[in-house]
């Protein structure tokens, strides 16, 4: 990957996958971002971002079994790779470093 750090949306998606664990597919990822990240998202945007993350080796995906409630379509499960985890940590480090030493942000929850 040419970029060193993740975009905020990429970071949100990777964190959502890590929070969900083994059952991370489109619907719970979107729900996690909407409920915890408090951000409205389109599933298309999530899949576009996930495809990009997969191309960059930050996530891997695998298909489950087709289920009747999904019209016979399989779920696509996502998992964060070692490279993805490293990118999350590096982004966290960069953000934390940028956060520190800003007087306007001290003493409040923003």
């Amino acid at each position: 990957m040419s970029r060193q750090h993740l975009t905020d949306f990429e970071l949100m998606i990777l964190l959502a996958i890590l929070r969900i664990g083994d059952e991370a597919y489109g619907v719970p990822i979107a729900r996690e971002i909407e409920e915890i990240g408090r951000r409205k998202v389109l599933l298309a945007a999530i899949y576009t971002c996930l495809d990009r993350l997969e191309d960059n080796g930050l996530v891997t995906s695998s298909y489950g079994d087709p289920t009747p409630e999904r019209g016979g379509r399989a779920k696509r499960f996502f998992e964060v790779t070692g490279k993805g985890l490293k990118a999350v940590k590096e982004t966290q480090r960069a953000f934390t470093a940028l956060w520190s030493g800003i007087p306007q942000l001290k003493g409040g929850t923003a």
């Binding site: 619907v27 979107a30 389109l42 599933l43 298309a44 999904r70």
Partner: peptide, 27 residues
């Protein structure tokens, strides 16, 4: 196909037709 499955799953859980169309246009 997986995305279509996600949408159908959500619709069957009560999401509106407007929500579906917004998602499909987004896709």
């Amino acid at each position: 196909d997986a995305l279509a499955g996600d949408l159908l799953e959500q619709v069957r859980r009560g999401r509106s037709g407007l929500w579906l169309w917004r998602q499909v246009i987004g896709v």
